[in-house]
Amino acid sequence: MVNTEKFITEAIRRIQEESKGEKVVIALSGGVDSSVCAELASRAIGERLIPIYVDTGLMRKGETERITEIFGHLGLKVVNAADEFLDALEGESDPEKKRKIVGERFIRVFEREATATGAQYLLQGTIYPDCIESEGGIKSHHNVGGLPLTMQFSGVIEPLRDLYKDEVRAVAEALGLPREIAHRMPFPGPGLSVRVVGKVTREAIEVVREANAIIE
């Protein structure tokens, strides 16, 4: 199990070192992985961190409002890109292709935001199982196997890349994050698109969103 105190100290140092004094954008989804990254980066580089929440139109019911409420103190910027993602996914039925489409769109959105803010680096909440599943051909994660081959960033910073999910949760608790974040149920990066069986349509997304809310 991870030594949380030692890990936090080392992660902060690594973020400071790898960001090289430049601005950094982080994809803050509200899941435990990206939330831990955001807290670590906030402590590491302060106002050089630009946290961005992308509303892909594929989120859980009420999620955008709740994430805005929880992370507003970090100066969170909300980008409404629902039409962009839904247009790109329209009619796609293959789960792997859905993941790659979402991965591509995510990067393009963050490239635009980075250009607008002068950020040079992208910080992601990639964890070890993401790498295992993507590199082993099990499934492509939008932040690993789903990444496009060319990006405008000087680099990608991934402080959690060597941790498992239970270790990330332990770090979240050590950082003092709310329990609802530290123990949040995992949700796929491509969102509701991969919970739609068959072709993605706006109607199908809404049906699955309501069903997900009922189950949760």
Rank of each mutant, 00 (worst) to 15 (best):
E216Q: 12
V24R: 01
F106H: 04
R209M: 11
D55V: 10
V24N: 02
M59F: 04
L149A: 14
T201L: 02
T9A: 15
I101D: 07
Y164I: 05
G72C: 04
V207R: 14
L163K: 09
G46E: 12
V171Y: 03
I132C: 06
G136A: 08
E92C: 14
P129N: 04
L123Y: 07
I45D: 00
G31P: 00
I205Y: 09
I132M: 12
N3S: 07
I205D: 05
R169W: 07
L58K: 03
K97Q: 11
G72S: 11
A174V: 07
E47C: 05
V171A: 03
F71R: 09
I205N: 10
V197W: 10
Y121P: 05
E104Q: 13
T201E: 00
S134N: 08
P148H: 10
I52N: 00
L160Q: 05
S134Q: 05
A38S: 10
P178L: 04
E210G: 03
P186I: 08
T64E: 13
N3R: 13
D162Q: 13
P178Y: 11
A114R: 04
H141Q: 07
G91L: 11
R209E: 08
V156F: 12
D87K: 15
V78Y: 06
A174E: 15
S193K: 11
L149W: 13
P129T: 01
M59L: 15
R13E: 15
R108D: 01
A82I: 06
R99F: 09
E113C: 00
R209Y: 07
E113S: 01
V24H: 09
T4I: 04
M59N: 10
K98M: 02
K165H: 12
E135F: 15
E210W: 07
R13C: 02
G62M: 00
A170H: 09
T126A: 00
N3F: 04
A38G: 14
A174Y: 14
E210K: 11
M185K: 15
H142G: 03
A174D: 04
F7Q: 00
A211S: 13
G62E: 09
G155W: 11
H183Q: 13
V78R: 15
E158K: 14
A213K: 12
E158L: 03
H73N: 13
Y53R: 06
F85K: 10
V196Q: 08
V197D: 15
I67T: 06
P129M: 05
M185A: 15
G191E: 01
L160H: 03
I181M: 07
E203S: 13
A211F: 09
E92T: 15
V208S: 02
E96S: 11
F85R: 02
F106V: 02
L89F: 06
R105E: 15
L89A: 10
K98Q: 02
G30Y: 12
T4W: 05
K139Q: 11
G118L: 01
A81G: 08
K100E: 10
V24G: 12
G176Q: 07
E210V: 13
C131T: 13
F106I: 13
L163T: 03
E133H: 07
E180G: 08
T201W: 11
A204H: 03
E63Y: 11
F7C: 01
A44V: 05
S154E: 14
S29P: 02
F110S: 01
P159V: 09
G145P: 08
E111D: 05
L163D: 05
A114C: 11
S134W: 10
I8G: 06
E18S: 12
I70T: 14
V32R: 06
T117Y: 04
Y121A: 06
E84T: 15
